[in-house]
Simulated assay, not measured.
Amino acid sequence: MNVFRLAGDMTHLMSVIVLLLKIHTIKSCAGISLKTQELYALVFVARYLDLFTDFISLYNTIMKLIFLVSSFSIVWYMRQHKIVRRSYDKNQDTFRHHFLILPCLLLALFINEKITFKEVMWTFSLFLEAVAILPQLVLLQRTRNIDNLTGQYVFLLGAYRALYILNWIYRYFTEPHYVHWITWICGLVQTLLYADFFYYYFNSWKNNVKLQLPA
């Protein structure tokens, strides 16, 4: 494992920790899209179907379990926890996320590296992850004023994907025959979706002002 892959995994893990910290300690999910969290839960289920059949390493297994358990915990908190769910802004989080699922599944059926159930589900998870952040970005655009922890959560998610792109570039030049076009394109699309947010995030950090997106 190279340093970019490890940094990407740790950044992804930090994003989950920041979100759980916000929900568990502050008892608030204000500014967080339940639609995006549900999509991520589906992404991890589809991606980690091999959890109990193909052992790669202890590190790999632990990370898979962490992301599965944490994603479903976040959805549970936002849907069921009496205090947390009161802070969820359902009226603003109206992106029709279910319309993203079927196109991603159909695309995975036609564009994949191998026609097997697990491979199609893996590819489906890549396509879905590429667009899963859309409900969150739309919600931030509507609410405009973004609290510290929410801003850090979204930034870390974007940084995780950017670090994975560096990981792919590194592996392309150091490993023979390392070519995964579907993964690369999905990762690039996902990273580009964060571009606008990154711009305003770094501006707020540079000027030491509260993060605020334009109307």
Rank of each mutant, 00 (worst) to 15 (best):
M1S: 12
M1A: 08
N2Q: 11
V3K: 13
G8A: 12
M10R: 01
M10L: 15
T11W: 11
L13R: 06
V16Q: 08
L20P: 03
L21D: 14
T25L: 14
T25E: 11
T25S: 09
T25V: 08
A30K: 15
I32R: 09
T36Q: 07
A41S: 15
L42F: 06
L42G: 06
V45K: 02
Y48Q: 08
F52Q: 01
S57M: 00
T61A: 08
T61E: 09
L65E: 07
I74V: 15
R79Q: 07
R85M: 10
R86N: 14
R86H: 12
Y88H: 15
Y88E: 08
K90N: 15
Q92M: 06
Q92S: 09
Q92P: 00
D93Y: 02
H98N: 12
L100R: 01
L100N: 04
L102P: 02
C104E: 10
F110V: 14
I111K: 00
I115Q: 12
T116P: 00
K118D: 15
E119F: 01
W122Y: 15
T123D: 12
A130H: 05
Q141F: 07
T143D: 03
R144V: 07
D147L: 02
L149F: 14
Q152K: 10
Y153S: 04
V154K: 04
F155I: 06
G158K: 05
R161S: 03
A162I: 14
Y164T: 10
N167F: 13
Y170C: 01
Y170Q: 10
Y172C: 01
Y172G: 02
H177K: 11
V179T: 11
H180E: 15
T183C: 07
V189T: 12
L192T: 14
Y199C: 06
Y199G: 00
Y201Q: 03
W205L: 12
N207S: 10
N208G: 00
L211E: 11
L213R: 04
